[in-house]
Amino acid sequence: MTDKNVRFPQLFLRLSISVTMLSAVADRLGFWGKNSAWGNWENFEAYTRKLTFFLPESLSIFSAYTATFFELLFPVLLLLGWKTRMAACGSCFLLLVFALSMTVALGIKAPLDYSVWVGSAGAFLLAVQPEYFFSIDQLTNKL
């Protein structure tokens, strides 16, 4: 496969991972309204407590804030194409933690229904790319 054949699929993967993660954050902040997975922060905290049942409540709440921070940081970096490899690795491991937590707490069906495994695998595939097209990284490498 030539570089020319990879450019748009790679960009599509980068953008789809970004938009998907940002949509999840928008949901927990109430931007998607009542017909959504969480609809507000309180519901998201309750869901996080389910996934992190093995943690004390204070650490569970902290993990909700930490996950949200990284779920904002990584997709913004991916959208810009800046520090793309780091953002893709971070997204891969964040989604992997989500998938494993969902599997342990809720069973295998939940992460499969939400394609969390696919998102993690896609981020991993993005992380191992030799070059990032249509990105700030590409521009800075040329300089």
Rank of each mutant, 00 (worst) to 15 (best):
S36G: 03
D113A: 06
S115Q: 08
L96P: 02
V118M: 07
Y114N: 06
P111A: 12
K4C: 15
R28C: 01
T84S: 05
E42L: 01
M21C: 06
S135W: 02
N40I: 00
W38R: 02
L22G: 06
D137E: 07
E45I: 00
G81I: 02
Q10N: 11
R28Y: 07
F8G: 07
T2D: 14
K50G: 00
T2M: 10
A110Y: 15
V25K: 13
A121I: 08
V97L: 13
E42R: 11
G119T: 12
T68Y: 13
G122Y: 12
T2I: 10
A105R: 07
P75W: 14
L94H: 04
G107R: 15
L22H: 08
L73F: 14
I136L: 05
I61H: 06
T68D: 12
G30N: 02
F31A: 10
F93A: 09
P75C: 11
N40E: 07
L55M: 08
V118N: 09
A37I: 01
S16E: 09
V116P: 01
S60I: 04
E71H: 11
F134D: 06
Y132I: 01
K109G: 03
L11A: 12
C92F: 15
I17N: 07
T84L: 11
L72M: 13
C89R: 14
L112W: 15
L96K: 14
P75T: 06
G33I: 04
G39E: 11
I136W: 15
P9E: 11
R49I: 03
T48D: 05
V25D: 15
N40W: 03
L79W: 11
I61L: 04
N40Q: 06
I61C: 03
Q138C: 10
R7H: 15
V19H: 13
A99T: 12
F124A: 10
V19G: 04
L11C: 09
V25P: 04
A105P: 00
M1H: 14
I108L: 15
P9M: 09
L79K: 07
F8E: 15
F70C: 08
K50R: 12
T48I: 05
A127N: 13
W117S: 04
F8S: 13
L51E: 11
S16Q: 14
L13A: 14
D137L: 01
S60C: 06
S91V: 00
A121G: 10
I108G: 12
D137Q: 10
N5I: 01
R7Y: 15
L77T: 02
S91P: 00
N35T: 13
T66L: 14
G81F: 04
M21F: 15
Q138V: 01
V97K: 14
T48Q: 13
A67D: 09
K109V: 14
A123E: 07
W32G: 02
D137C: 06
F70T: 02
L95D: 07
L22P: 00
G107V: 05
F124D: 01
G30Q: 02
F12S: 09
L94R: 00
V97N: 09
A127W: 14
L73P: 00
D27S: 08
L77M: 03
K50L: 02
S36D: 05
D3A: 09
S60Y: 11
L95F: 13
A105K: 03
E42D: 07
Y132D: 00
T103C: 11
Y65C: 03
L22S: 08
A105Y: 03
E57N: 11
V19R: 07
L143H: 11
Y132H: 05
L139K: 09
L79M: 10
